[in-house]
Write a protein that binds this DNA or RNA. Structure first.
Lengths: 237, 237
DNA sequence: GTAAAAACTTGATCTGGATCAAGAGTTTGA
DNA sequence: TCAAACTCTTGATCCAGATCAAGTTTTTAC
């Protein structure tokens, strides 16, 4: 697959400019910088991950692929940087090419409740805010330095209408997301704290090593102390 | 809208034949009985509820409506009758025109855990079993005498491919289902038993009066005793 | 390199909701 | 119509996991 150099390069987008140190991980890279060959290679590699995801899921013509890429926005987040803050309206479809983010709420006492983790090759965002066009109750921030491919929802819907195969992917993702949410509800109703943890590491091996325990505890609906004790006990066995 | 009498009448389907007493609520009504005028009127009225649902959601041509209706299967369930039993593979898309069903699992100690309630104008079934073609972990049974419109998933997918408007409805339902599951997870992570109950009766007014408290308690992840005490306390206020 | 801030562990104590038990309605079915 | 089977209530007791507290290790930032 060969792309015209300037035409098919993804648009670039970031939130904060800043010091030279910040340059690599979070910066508005404008068109001129993009035209610098070294940078282009890097950004191109990022988009390739998303392209590979699409290719794995479905058959797209080269024209369709290029059409999709022409609307892609590449974004980088540094660790702890927000992708979405409570009160803002979420307007994107966002695919993670590298890294890890968490979606959480903050209660009136300041306690954080983790709703979900998303890593590379998953989607993230707040569908409720997106669909209902209402301020989000969630915060989303990066647990690690993270790279995403974003589409404004407007553009993404248009692409879905144009490209049925893309629409089918979205449908499938939604179904899987729903099934996975159902299973989580089921687990929360039926399992003990220890069973929830074992179920988690079994279902998501690898997560335990890259996500702080405090956040995993919150995701599982228990305190960090309880999780620490459970880990100690299960390590014995 | 005028239907040819025999051609557009929905197909009829039921699980158990049986005594004359059972006749009205659950019986295989075959074509000959269907041709009896009185019965036809009743069944026609049932399908009309689904037709109205479709008309509310989207614009269909008369031809599309008739095409959909030609694949509809009408099913009646008596109170306590199963729509799906654990271990069976679910193969339908099912819309409730009247009544109420519950989806639940049974743990190794025989305890029932209610995953969801569905009433008229909602869909029910087990999407995981349907999508993965695997035996269901869930049971679905009727809390009240219930009437449904079923489509085999094969037929329904074909209809979705033929009729984009129907596909859009399915998409929207999936999104709403997912959002609602997310909210339930959030509630289970953040709310106390009392708050869960108040949240429930606020979100689903009318459910409390038609669903036994034991089942509501199970749905909310608490014991019937706890729910009883909460109701006593909140009644005081 | 180092001070400050997070993250994790361990212990002591507390508590919301579970469990066990028993009585009072209410529904169901022959 | 009436016994059996559920459903709901109320009280007594128990326990899984929360909270509070303090020390240790790891990470972050200049």
């Amino acid at each position: 697959m060969v792309h015209g150099f300037t035409l098919s390069a993804p648009k670039l987008y970031g939130v904060s400019g800043g010091s030279i140190k910040k340059w690599f991980t979070s910066v508005i890279v404008n068109f001129k910088i993009c035209a610098s060959f070294g940078i282009y290679i890097i950004l191109h590699a990022m988009y390739e991950i998303f392209q590979k995801y699409l290719d794995d899921k479905t058959e797209l013509t080269q024209q369709e692929s290029e059409r999709i890429q022409s609307f892609a926005i590449i974004k980088k987040l540094r660790k702890r940087q927000y992708l979405l803050q409570e009160g803002d309206v979420w307007k994107y479809d966002a695919f993670i090419t590298q890294g890890c983010v968490r979606t959480y709420t903050v209660d009136e006492k300041g306690g954080e409740h983790v709703n979900s983790f998303s890593i590379e090759n998953w989607w993230t965002g707040d569908r409720e805010s997106l669909m209902m066009q209402q301020p989000s109750r969630f915060n989303i921030d990066a647990i690690e330095d993270t790279e995403l491919v974003l589409f404004t929802h407007e553009n993404f819907e248009m692409l879905c209408r144009e490209i049925p195969a893309l629409n089918n992917i979205v449908n499938t993702i939604l179904q899987r997301s729903f099934i996975s949410a159902q299973n989580r509800i089921q687990a929360s109703l039926t399992l003990t704290a220890e069973e929830k943890y074992l179920n988690f590491i079994n279902k998501y091996p690898g997560f335990a090593s890259r996500i702080p325990q405090t956040m995993i505890a919150s995701y599982l609906g228990m305190t960090p102390e309880t999780l620490s004790r459970i880990r100690k006990q299960t390590a014995k066995k």
